[in-house]
Design a protein around this nucleic acid. Structure first.
Length: 347
DNA sequence: AAACGACCCAACCGCGGAGAA
DNA sequence: TTTCTCCGCGGTTGGGTCGTT
């Protein structure tokens, strides 16, 4: 009983569609900040932390919705060997991937490696779903190329080159394919033809739109992706590069000019009066219920991202009708809120 | 068909850093 | 300078799904 009461105060556990909807609404109003405030005014019985996490790891429009690709895998391996468990830092190098995602991937990856090592890695090269990179990694162990310890240790200069060298089979074994980094980038670019970010931008498009991007130019133009009306709406960049290092979400591009100051750290320094702005927004809404927000958005601006998101969410059939989506979310607990929508017929 | 283990992913927790008061 | 608040990060856990036996 007491637990039930507490449950009503701050909900925990899996998010419902309704909660997702509310959160998206309020993040679109107030930006990606002041999570406690958003948690309060949205009427979600969640704490700010939980809201932020849900947004960052699941609802953020820039997230990729597919499995880690081989080039990404290699990049993760490389960056992890450099930086250790600095997941957020590594994630910044992989647009559309979250630190949580990479962390989870790495966990699985290392567990696999440990198991293969146990079994005697000689027969293990085909066991990885992505093959080459895992081969390279397990191969490095076979050949005694030791991966540098994770935490805080600088990358051993010889590690990666040893790995590269290990790629050329000598003893009759099949040659191990190891990717040089520029090839990795190219493959990431190419693989994005099949794996776009949820904003419908391919890596190539992304790079084309972002001159500051440090990636090499794409080798070719893929056919245009089927874009979602949701993300067409916010076709401008969601991420920007700063000092050639970090990717940053650019809220102004997404939400339009407003009170949102893009800041990777999430902290707002130059906002003249965020609280009064928020208060105004809330009072403008008249009420803070998600229903009110929903009807306001859908009716006032049917083409808005949120209206489209709502339409997508309302159409439950979409989820089951999209095998790619289901593949991406094997094992997921809740139904995904934003689908890589099929092309919308003009009529 | 059922049981089991492996895999995958969402979400929670605790801690620490940064800025505001 | 100290305290408080907010936020981000890394570690960990719980549970759903899938493949195998």
């Amino acid at each position: 009983m007491e637990a039930v009461i507490r449950e009503e105060r701050t909900r925990k556990g899996p998010w419902t569609e309704q909660e997702d909807l509310q959160l998206v609404c309020y993040v679109s109003l107030f930006g990606e900040r002041r999570w406690d405030f958003i948690a309060k005014v949205s009427g979600l019985n969640r704490n700010g932390k939980s809201c932020r996490l849900r947004w960052v790891n699941y609802l953020h429009p820039g997230l990729k919705r597919c499995r880690i690709t081989p080039p990404e895998e290699l990049l993760i391996l490389d960056l992890h060997s450099k930086w250790g468990n600095r997941w957020s830092r590594i994630a910044r190098r992989l647009p559309g991937r979250t630190d949580n995602e990479i962390k989870n991937y790495w966990r699985t990856h290392t567990r696999k490696m440990a198991q293969e090592r146990k079994r005697g890695a000689s027969r293990s090269s085909s066991s990885s779903s992505w093959g080459s990179s895992c081969v390279a990694s397990s191969r490095s162990k076979q050949l005694g190329v030791e991966e540098p310890a994770a935490a805080g240790k600088e990358k051993d200069e010889g590690y990666w080159s040893s790995l590269m060298a290990a790629g050329t089979g000598e003893d009759g074994e099949e040659a191990i394919k190891v990717f040089p980094m520029d090839q990795i980038w190219n493959e990431m670019v190419t693989s994005d033809s099949n794996c776009s970010t949820t904003d419908g931008l391919s890596f190539q498009q992304y790079c084309r739109d972002h001159e500051a991007c440090s990636m090499p130019p794409p080798p070719c133009d893929p056919p245009p992706l089927a874009s979602s009306p949701l993300w067409d709406y916010c076709a401008e960049s969601l991420w920007k590069m700063e000092e050639g290092d970090d990717y940053e979400f650019n809220p102004e591009s997404f939400y339009g000019a407003g009170p949102v100051n893009g800041s990777d750290s999430g902290r707002v320094d130059s906002d003249p009066d965020p609280n009064s702005y928020m208060s105004d927004q809330v009072s403008n809404l008249g009420q803070t219920s998600a229903t009110r927000v929903r009807s306001t958005i859908v009716h006032d601006d049917p083409g808005s991202p949120l209206a489209t998101l709502m339409q997508i969410k309302d159409s439950r059939a979409l989820a089951s009708a999209n095998p790619q989506w289901n593949r991406c979310y094997q094992g997921g607990k809740s139904s995904p809120p934003v689908l890589p929508a099929p092309p919308v017929a003009d009529s």
